[in-house]
Design a protein around this nucleic acid. Structure first.
Length: 722
RNA sequence: GCGCGAUUAGCUCAGUGGUAGAGCGCUUCAUUGACAUUGAAGAGGCCGGAAGUUCGAUCCUUCCAUCGCGCACCA
């Protein structure tokens, strides 16, 4: 018969298979209640809080999501193990314009269009779509191991959010920081909405530049299709070539559709170096022209409609799409002998919609703006006073530059999917009035009738107040008191202006405090050759597929090692595979340790040799790893741990232990204790990075080895204060 | 136009004022051994170019080249 000898858990006899354990382990964590800081031991007093950037609930998670979940989860798990009262606030974003675009594409595939629906119908459909995606997406976040507190989850359309956003809107009006005015706005003829400057991309193009005869002048333009209404000719007051012309002088000009009377305007915006130094202006379709027109109180008229078609002012060209019109107009001018010459190699940048690439058409539009200068100045003062800081100083410079040159922010979007703007607009004078109670019936300025503003907020206006919302600012819980300002804001550097800057300014505005103390920005995840992932290139790496093939821990390690803060990184499946092997290595280390310590009974004294060994190698390595963690260099910490486990623990400690374990007595027992110590230390150090495999192993360890039932809340193996 | 970053092994990228590192790939060998999701050994780099600071530079300074990115209402 077989001898009855203690044995190791059977699961270590086969390789580590992530699929068998991940769901169960997440459930264990979740049911432990420790995601919620209220359930952590009450002696924990120091707080650590992070607001999760709420993912857009309009699709599945991409590699960038996996990266931020990983980085933030590492921070949370590290701080939680260090003994802090750690909380991570999860959420989901309705993502106004982004989601509406996704939904419109879906409609298009079904042969439908948003323009055939009422706003209410569209809103209701997108809401269903978004909520379905939201729960799908939350499942994916869980699968990545996110140790966030789901009991505190918030959606950007929840009442709590809307209330805070509306209060801010009202307060901005009260403080004179909000205005409604006619200004040049970035209009996308396809999406039928205006944008802030941030949503406009500038595309470098080489196009013809046309010189037309305009009375006695030659004017240059890249956009002949806008020129129908041009009746002002502008030049610099000091341009000697035109000293014989006086400001206000009328001249007769034969133009596209016949003779017109033009007026000479002397304005410093006229650049003598540019072209002939003379230009005509189209205030309705050019921001700079609009400024000139305002300075001189000039007339202006819309030439291109909201869909990008020419209006009746264009005469025979009326109704023509501007993309077709340019060539035809030049042909006509040519026929009339009004083309002076054409420069075919004009290099310039053209504003385009960041989403569809269609040329942005500047249009004069009445809308809401937030006066940003005062808000930006306060943010800069807070930065100077070190109320918050960037992990990478390069981002701080970029941030400063943008805030210093900030424009007013158009916060309205002409789309259905979003938080409605609680305001009335006067039918007569166009005056805008914030109306939270929804009871204004007459204009507060002229007494005229009013109508509801049909627009919705720029999604960044509400998400700019997100830290206030998740911490329940003005609410009944203690979260705001306990967790605001939060410890760290971790997000992509691509939204430093869209989101980070706005959160700082609006958080500071509402509460007097910047919503986070530290800003850690990560770069973009690219494919293994450094190319941007895109559906059209077919190089998109879906986290869920990688997780299935290599395990979540392996994906997390691959996303972290060599990933320098604020720098783009490449994701190579081969690299993920390397960390899959690593998880298995750890698995087999455990098998070896358990196999060789079944008879080990602590407590036992280390031999002097083993004490010396740990002092020489183990302790300095742990310290070094800790210091990388403490400085937010998780990339370096992860790599160190990898080598600690593989090269030091496995290749050195275990190999050298083999002969010692073959002996009897104190030497063997001391080595057994050392193996336990190394294994426990490795699991703890590695847990923030590879939470699933480490917790799976932890749960199988004999009680005598563990100082906590759950590794997630086990004490971190290094304390700098001791 | 203004600003920023990069240039290190075949590929993708870390890193350091003092004989150069990782992953993958490659070569050779080993293997009833905790682990073939393995082990051992190895090949492979004037650390973009030029000048400077220094006892010493891949690292600091300046210039140049190439690539990439951000910001920007120039007709």
């Amino acid at each position: 018969m077989n001898e009855q000898k203690p044995t190791i858990p059977e699961l270590f006899l086969s390789p580590y298979n992530p699929q068998d354990h991940e769901d169960k382990i997440y459930k264990l964590w979740h049911e432990s209640g420790y995601f919620n800081p209220d359930n952590l031991p009450s002696e924990r007093t120091e707080q650590f809080s992070i607001v999760m950037p709420p993912p857009n609930a309009n699709g599945s998670l991409h590699a960038g999501h996996a990266l931020f979940v990983t980085v933030q989860d590492i921070m949370l798990r590290f701080e939680r193990m260090r003994g802090k009262k750690a909380v991570w606030f999860p959420g989901a974003d309705h993502a106004g314009f982004e989601t509406q675009v996704v939904y419109e594409k879906k409609l298009e595939k079904e042969g439908r269009s948003r323009f055939q629906m009422t706003r209410e119908e569209l809103y209701a459909e997108i809401l269903d779509f978004t909520l379905a995606n939201k729960s799908f997406m939350e499942g994916q976040i869980r699968s990545l191991g996110a140790s966030c507190d789901w009991s505190r989850e918030l959606f950007t359309l929840d009442d709590k959010v809307v209330k805070i956003v509306y209060d801010t809107f009202k307060q901005l009006e009260t403080d004179g920081l909000l205005y409604r005015g006619a200004r040049s706005s970035n209009w996308c003829p396809k999406h039928q909405t205006s944008f802030s400057n941030l949503e406009v991309e500038h595309e470098e193009r080489t196009e013809p530049f046309y010189y037309f005869k305009y009375g006695p002048f030659v004017i240059g333009t890249a956009r002949p299709e806008t020129k129908f209404g041009d009746k002002y000719v502008v030049m610099h007051p000091d341009d000697k070539r035109y000293k014989d012309y006086e400001h206000g002088q009328k001249i007769e000009v034969e133009w596209i559709n016949g003779p017109i009377t033009a007026t000479v305007i002397k304005d410093e915006a006229g650049d003598p170096e540019m072209g002939t130094g003379v230009m005509t202006i189209t205030p309705w379709h050019s921001g700079i022209d609009f400024e000139i027109a305002k300075r001189h109180n000039l007339d202006y008229e819309q030439v291109i409609d909201w869909r990008g078609k020419l209006l009746p002012i264009a005469g025979e060209f009326a109704g023509m799409d501007i993309r077709d019109a340019r060539k035809k107009i030049v042909e006509k001018l040519e026929a009339k002998g009004l083309v002076d010459h054409i420069d075919e190699n004009y290099h310039h940048s053209v504003p385009c919609c960041y989403k569809c690439g269609r040329e942005i058409e500047p249009q004069i539009k009445e809308q809401w703006f937030v006066h940003m200068k005062p808000l930006a100045e306060k943010a800069l003062i807070a930065l100077d006073a070190k109320k918050f800081s960037f992990v990478t100083e390069r981002d701080e410079r970029v941030f400063r530059h943008w805030l210093t040159n900030i424009d007013d922010w158009p916060i309205a979007r002409q789309i259905a999917w979003g938080i409605p703007i609680p305001a009335k607009v006067c039918d007569d004078c166009g005056h805008g009035m914030v109306d939270l109670e929804n009871n204004l019936t007459t204009c507060t300025k002229c007494g005229g009738g009013v109508h509801q503003d049909p627009d919705t907020f720029d999604t960044w206006f509400s998400s700019g107040q997100w830290p206030l919302c998740v911490t329940d600012f003005g609410g009944e819980s203690d979260d705001f008191k306990n967790y605001y300002p939060t410890s760290v804001m971790e997000t992509g550097k691509d939204i430093i202006f869209f989101w980070v800057a706005r959160m700082i300014m609006l958080g500071l505005y509402r509460t007097g405090e910047v919503p986070f103390k530290k800003i850690y920005l990560h770069g973009m995840v690219r494919d293994k050759h450094g190319k941007k992932m895109s559906k059209s290139k077919g190089n998109v790496i879906a986290p869920s597929e990688i997780q299935e093939k290599y395990g979540t821990d392996a994906l997390r390690m691959a996303l972290i090692v060599n990933n320098v803060p604020s720098t783009d990184m490449n994701l190579d499946p081969d690299k993920v595979n390397a960390y899959k092997k690593f998880a298995n290595k750890l698995w087999n280390i455990t098998r070896f340790v358990l196999d060789n310590t079944t008879d080990y009974e602590p407590p036992i004294e280390h031999t002097p040799e083993d004490v010396a060994f740990e002092n020489e190698f183990l302790h300095p390595m742990v310290k070094e790893i800790h210091e990388h963690m403490d400085k937010d260099r998780f990339d370096l910490a992860a790599e160190k741990i990898y080598h600690f486990v593989w090269d030091h623990f496995a290749s050195t400690v275990i190999e050298e232990s083999k002969p010692l374990l073959a002996t009897e007595g104190a030497i063997r027992a001391s080595r057994q204790r050392m193996l336990h110590h190394y294994l426990v230390t490795s699991l703890k150090l590695l847990h923030p990075f590879m939470p699933f495999v480490t917790e799976t192993i932890w749960q199988e360890l004999p009680e005598k080895m563990r100082d906590s039932d759950i590794l997630m809340v086990a004490p971190w193996p290094f304390n700098p204060d001791v």
